[in-house]
């Protein structure tokens, strides 16, 4: 148990941005922080890093708060990307990583490894403002991980990347985790979260609405999807109690139901109606869960 967040709260002028979240993240884990825009993800990250002081509660990494004495242990990819526009890639990585206590030779050695890995060794002496946004982001990522932090905080690391580069970054993140880095990240792309993390928290207006192991959450989640293939019209299912949504297809339909009970009702309805080529009960996607749980935050 390494990162422990205990009843963390942050209030800006009466507005509760983060409202009592508690978490335990194990060493070497990849942890997802989800939530709609304005749910309090960035604010939580800033409190973990000590950039903002919590109104209440605290954050401990291996038993101690993250103060300026321990920033070497932490790597951060801020949501608002930013590097020195007029400095070369090399100069700024050297400066930013020196601040983490690494010496120049090791920085340059490590930097070249990363630039090679991202396929951009020729950027070493280029000025940042000459790079494209996605390529700047690669450099930003390198700045977060160059000093081999124990705890890595990535605020929306995949936004703005093309699929190829997003994959490259994803693999880099996975490798880091395999090397033992504890990673906390936020993302709006649910597929990335499903692919990467085991545990997650979902925030809505600063409060946790879901929390725990991704698979357990999905399995125990009441809402289910049913995929049906049948030769007759399935529109009548709309009136069955517990059906949330039905999407008709050429040879069947995808039905979203409240719980397994509703699925059983549908199954018996269909059995009385005629032959069914396929009937499959699926766990909901994280996307569905997100919309169910965290959606509407902006509208309420």
């Amino acid at each position: 148990m390494t990162l422990i967040i205990n009843n963390l709260k942050k209030t800006f002028d009466k507005h509760k941005a983060v409202d009592g979240i508690s978490l335990t993240i194990n060493e070497g884990e990849m942890f997802g922080m989800l939530g709609a825009n304005g749910a309090g993800k960035t604010t939580s990250f800033r409190m973990i890093l000590g950039l903002l002081d919590p109104t209440e509660g605290d954050v401990r990494w291996k038993g101690e708060r993250i103060t300026y004495k321990r920033t070497k242990l932490v790597g951060y990819l801020p949501e608002e990307r930013g590097l020195f526009p007029k400095l070369t890639v090399k100069d700024q990585l050297v400066y930013l990583t020196k601040l983490k206590g690494m010496n120049k030779q090791s920085i340059i050695k490590e930097m070249r490894l990363w630039l090679d890995r991202f396929g951009v060794p020729e950027y070493e002496n280029k000025v940042i403002e000459e790079l494209s946004k996605g390529n700047q982001q690669k450099i930003q990522f390198i700045a977060a991980v160059l000093h081999k932090p124990e705890l890595l905080i990535l605020d929306e690391p995949f936004s703005g990347l093309d699929p190829v580069n997003a994959d490259m970054l994803k693999n880099a993140v996975k490798d880091l985790q395999e090397r033992g880095t504890t990673i906390v990240f936020s993302s709006h792309q649910m597929s990335n979260v499903e692919e990467l993390c085991e545990d997650l928290i979902m925030l809505k207006k600063g409060k946790a609405v879901l929390q725990g192991n991704l698979r357990t959450i999905k399995r125990s989640y009441d809402m289910k999807n049913i995929s049906i293939k049948a030769d007759y019209d399935l529109a009548f299912l709309e009136d069955v109690k517990g059906v949330l949504k039905i999407e008709q297809k050429k040879d069947g339909a995808d039905v979203k139901v409240e719980n397994e009970k509703a699925a059983e009702t549908i199954f018996s309805c269909l059995a009385s109606k005629g032959f069914v080529r396929k009937f499959e009960l699926e766990e909901p996607s994280l996307h569905d869960i997100f919309i169910d749980k965290a959606g509407g935050a902006a509208h309420e």
């Binding site: 890093l49 000590g50 950039l51 300026y68 920033t71 932490v74 951060y76 801020p78 608002e80 990307r81 930013g82 590097l83 020195f84 526009p85 700024q92 930013l96 601040l99 983490k100 700045a143």
Partner: peptide, 19 residues
């Protein structure tokens, strides 16, 4: 300039602002 280029958040996450 450091603030407007947003590199400041990264810097103050590493260094004490007084320093």
């Amino acid at each position: 300039t450091e603030k407007s280029s947003r590199v400041m958040e990264l810097i103050v996450s590493s260094v004490n602002p007084v320093t």
